[in-house]
């Protein structure tokens, strides 16, 4: 079984928001709801300074706090390591929204349940890649199997020593970042 993850090269990101729109399109989300977003950040001080765009989405943590606190067991991890929410058993208690240190869970007040990035499992299982990955004009994201040492993502992470965001929180995220 593969163990899917995404590597993100923020040095390539131009902040065009195509990934966010592609995701909303793929998941039939209204414009007000998003499973991924781009945070703009200024780095350094004048004259050595610049702007960094950091695309964010669910980290599909191996030690997922959202899954631990979910009382109904609606949040679960598939064999491929994708963290999903079962829409039939979620009660909308929002405990997971509070527990996620990355704040990547969204309350859908129309459906009354919590939703999030699903790593486009339906596309992935058909041999494709998530919409945010395939749509990116500057190829910021690399999708693949973290357990395959020959995969593009594994080689990219090894070569650039890519790290997850806030590894100290010990949730073992599967989204890795190369930031300089």
């Amino acid at each position: 079984m593969p163990r899917y993850g995404i590597a993100i090269d923020t040095t390539k990101c131009i902040g065009c928001q195509a990934c966010r729109v592609a995701c909303q399109n793929q998941n039939n989300l209204p414009v007000t709801e998003e499973f991924n977003r781009i945070v703009e950040r200024e780095r350094g001080t004048y004259p050595a300074f610049g702007k960094e765009f950091v695309p964010l989405q669910c980290n599909h943590c191996e030690n997922a706090p959202c899954q631990r606190v979910c009382p109904t067991g609606a949040t679960y991890t598939t064999e491929e390591g994708v963290v999903l929410v079962n829409p039939k058993t979620c009660v909308g208690c929002k405990y997971c929204v509070q527990a996620c240190p990355y704040r990547m869970r969204v309350m859908d007040h129309a459906k009354g349940i919590v939703e999030k990035c699903r790593l486009c499992v339906e596309l992935v299982r058909d041999g494709g890649t998530p919409a945010c990955v395939s749509t990116c004009p500057t190829q910021v994201r690399i999708f693949g199997d973290l357990d395959d040492p020959k995969s593009e993502i594994s080689r990219f992470i090894a070569e650039h020593r890519a790290q997850p965001l806030r590894p100290d929180l010990n949730t073992k995220p599967k989204i890795f970042y190369k930031r300089s």
Partner: peptide, 23 residues
């Protein structure tokens, strides 16, 4: 405060499903 669990109260039966959850 629940949403789907309030509109479809039978969902509340699942509330005791995860012993690692404080809820």
């Amino acid at each position: 405060d629940l949403e789907a669990g309030l509109w479809e109260p039978w969902r509340q039966i699942y509330l005791v499903a995860n012993s690692s959850s404080m809820i």
